[in-house]
Design a protein around this nucleic acid. Structure first.
Lengths: 350, 350
DNA sequence: CATAAGCGTGAGAGCGCTCTCACAACCGGA
DNA sequence: TCCGGTTGTGAGAGCGCTCTCACGCTTATG
């Protein structure tokens, strides 16, 4: 065997070498590696020990070339800077996805386009067939990506309920139920003038949580009041401004449900600015149960989401879609849990 | 051409087809695609238009098989859960790395091992040659990964100065200088009894920031006092406990420099618990300039790190190492910037 | 004018794997 | 006993690409 010229190359062991050592053909080694049942037990163990002895690892590129699968999954995070950097949602989700993919022996290819040009390049990349499927993390309305990918035949699964008009599998937490339990908790604590700072109207998490808020009021027989509902952009500053706006029209508010912890923090700031005490004068509940919820004074009651579990679920769904090439969209909704802390303690005298 | 049986397959265009359309050989198309200079201008444009017309995209697997490069880079994040989820460092870093890799047409393969078994599997994966190099993000002391990879000939670059004994390229921020400027700012504000809550002694960021603290005191001619130095684990609770410990021995403290914003938040809580006012009685400065710095009352003065830039730099360094197969370790140190906010306002009467 | 030296291009091998097909060995039923 | 079926294994093609080598042509050099 002639040694090629040029720089050192780590020549890793090949199927051929394993086959030779085990005294069988390449095909048989391939069968063992891929778990085909059509191999006699004796030959199987013989091959396995050869693999062990040589430290053989299949060459992904070669396999990929013939199978036309890459065994890799793209995770696309298209999110404006602000939230991406302040919300622990993304690392937690990635962790969940990562552990599921690792367990299934898939590569996680991360794409974080941060400009329009980038997004178009991302779409090109994905449709070029370099990945078996894609997980789309935080879709904004009118994002052309889902359509482009569906057209190209690339399986996708979305994290969070997609904007209207997009037909695709997704995994979401039960935002509506979570919000309802949060507001129900406020009502149970004796609050009656309950405002909400909802999320953007073009995001499912925004509208669903608002719906849950209304559900809880309806269930308690409290009439809804548009003056108690406002929206913000999930950020702290937005929450602060929204709270001030609410207080200006309804100074008698005794509780507020914010659709994110960050907005709840903003609300706390605004409330403190008007001299109101939390929870004595106004109770506050957030959503997400992010770390910031325990760094405020008082600590924030919040709705916890099973984020890692979302990651697992979304990865599982995508792998199933890739393997089945089964176009029936599925959705998985995960339950939330209310975490009670000081910011929503019931009022002493109801 | 016979159509293979089985499910639909998206057959993408190949070099062969482009070559045929352009009336040249595969080799020439390959030259054009890879930017070889040995192609006449006429042929080049002819080929390019054929590529355009067919929407040709090279098959990575096939290329990889022959070049023995994967054009993909692993990013390994080995970090205990707590910090990963509360610290926006990671998403920001990933963004920086991602944009650099995308620009250089490399895939970002994300690995987040979350158990010992996982870590061993990660090492196996990396040494199997599936990636051209690896970026190791938050190395703990005694991590065997750098050594294993170096031995296997996989180029690595570290984020943050590595623990002693590891010889590898890395990118870090100037922790020492950053800490020094923070403490210098406290001194300039008239503070004299300045404590520090340092990070863990086995992390470079911990020891470097402590050194910067001492530098600033020395420069101002203030004698160091062991009773004013304590360490914590970069978490909020740790910071709170540490602050209480400091106050117990030195109730006359008039300023504290915490080596992370989270610890600074903990310190704020502990200070409030003893009735001390910030900044009137005690000034507080953090490190990281994370979003939490603006959600506290008062807002936190902090040392900002160019995290995205770190991501860019570290990716650049790794690609250079891969291409040059040049084993000379390099290090790049990036400057920090002090962001002044209310928590460290100078005292009215010095 | 002969020879050398470039330059642009094509032919063809081969990267490591999977998968189809052929085939030998063995089985049980008529 | 013969034959169709099953089972385990091997031979060999070929996935799409790069890269070496050879070749014909043009241009400088002695």
């Amino acid at each position: 065997m002639t040694q090629p010229t040029g720089r050192t190359r780590r020549t890793s062991t090949t199927l051929e070498e394993v086959a030779h050592l085990a005294g069988v053909s390449r095909a048989t080694v391939s069968r063992v590696v891929n778990g085909s049942p059509r191999v006699s037990p004796e030959v199987r163990t013989e091959v396995q020990s050869a693999i062990e002895r040589l430290g053989y690892v299949p060459n992904r590129a070669a396999r990929s070339l013939v199978t036309r699968r890459s065994d890799s999954i793209a995770v696309v995070i298209t999110e404006p800077t602000a939230r991406l950097f302040s919300d622990p949602f993304f690392p937690r989700l990635l962790r969940g996805i990562s552990s599921e993919l690792a367990a299934r022996d898939r590569q996680l290819i991360l794409l974080m386009p941060d400009s329009a040009a980038d997004e178009s390049r991302t779409a090109d990349y994905l449709t070029a067939g370099h990945v078996d499927g894609a997980l789309l993390v935080s879709l904004h309305a009118n994002d052309p990506l889902p359509d482009r990918l569906s057209t190209a035949g690339i399986p996708i699964v979305l994290v969070g309920r997609p904007p209207k008009g997009i037909r695709a599998s997704y995994v979401d937490v039960d935002n509506r139920q979570g919000a309802q339990s949060a507001v129900g908790h406020l009502i149970a604590g004796g609050r009656r003038v309950i405002a909400t700072i909802a999320g953007p109207g073009d995001m499912a998490a925004g509208t669903d949580r608002l719906a849950g808020y209304r559900d809880a009021l309806a269930e308690a027989g409290i009439a809804p009041d548009p003056a108690l509902e406002t929206t913000a952009d999930f950020t702290q500053d937005g929450g602060s401004v929204a709270m001030s706006r609410l207080l200006a029209t309804r100074p008698d508010i005794d509780a507020v449900f914010a659709a994110s912890d960050l907005m709840a923090v903003g609300a706390l700031t605004a409330l403190a600015g008007t001299g109101r005490r939390v929870p004595a004068d106004v109770a506050v509940v957030g959503f997400d149960d992010s770390p910031v919820a325990t760094s405020t004074t008082p600590q924030l009651t919040s709705v916890r989401q099973p984020i890692e579990e979302m990651g697992h679920e979304v990865a599982r769904l995508l792998i199933a879609a890739v393997e089945a090439s089964d176009p029936v969209p599925r959705r998985v909704i995960l339950a939330t849990e209310l975490v009670r802390r000081a910011s929503s303690a019931g009022r002493p005298s109801p």
